[in-house]
Design a binder for these strands. Structure first.
Lengths: 147, 147
DNA sequence: GTATTAAAAGACCTTTTTGTCTTTTAATAA
DNA sequence: TTATTAAAAGACAAAAAGGTCTTTTAATAC
């Protein structure tokens, strides 16, 4: 569904938010390890996200990444669009350029319902809501099963 | 959602089926033109699909592609899996390897509903059902708006 | 048979995605 | 100030996706 880069970004952002809630600012090494993503690739991804304002970063000892609390809620959709564009959210299932109600592809109606649901999901959920969910349910966040 | 190759394959298969219903066997040139896909890429895709048994082909004058009528109904899902694997139909939205009920990712439940719907759609619809739909509704199949 | 038509096979190339590494910059600690 | 820590910048490279082209094979028409 999503690109690897998007998956890493989503996992990383939720992890950062979770740590921020504990007054910690994780660095690239920690993030990459916890979300099981390659170190350098993770570094590159969060450099971009920092440049785009989705996270803040601090250099030097004690440095790392954090999400500005005053920004409050970041819908997944915003993040996803920033990384891979909005094709998933507006495109035709058949890949047609001019697919619409007047000129529908053979899958137009059925696929439209699914696309609407995807839109609803990523517009409704935020990095913060997912972090909160994880806390509430003591969800296993990454690979290990809770013992 | 789908890879370009999958989109071209879906469009091309439905087009072939539509032409077969008119007792025609379109060739690569015709298919590529009608579905607006690159000629050589289309050729390669349908060579593979022929080798995998999804279509039959005939060489030489009057040759072209056709879908064996006795195979009756080909679910989109089979075709899609043959081209791009089943990741879309079984994978976790967060990209986690061990995401399941006991070890759910933060998006597990919500994404699972969408994935189920995708599965239902592509398992239920077939190349033949889409072609029939197109005929019944006089849908515009490719780029042009019906005049 | 020969000419023509059209798919099959397979080499090749370009772009995008994914990933790696080195050097530089900025912050803190001593 | 110097050493240390950690992100920023940007070059580089491998793999996958997307696309192109030439040569070969098989069918039909003559």
């Amino acid at each position: 569904m999503f690109k690897k880069e998007t998956e890493y970004a989503l996992r990383g952002m939720v992890y950062i938010q979770l740590q921020n809630l504990k007054d910690r600012r994780p660095g690239v090494a920690e993030i990459a390890h916890e979300i099981e993503a390659p170190y350098f690739f993770t570094a590159k991804i969060f450099q971009r996200l920092a440049k785009q304002g989705f996270v803040k970063s601090m250099k030097g000892k004690g440095g790392g990444f954090f999400i500005e609390p005053e920004k409050k809620d970041l819908p997944l959709k915003e993040l996803i669009i920033a990384i891979e564009g909005e094709e998933l959210f507006i495109g035709c299932g058949f890949g047609l350029k001019n697919c619409d109600e007047n000129n529908p592809c053979p899958l137009h109606h059925q696929y439209g319902m699914i696309r609407d649901q995807i839109n609803k999901l990523v517009a409704g959920e935020t990095i913060q809501s997912l972090a909160q969910n994880t806390l509430n349910k003591t969800l296993a966040f990454s690979r290990e099963t809770e013992k």
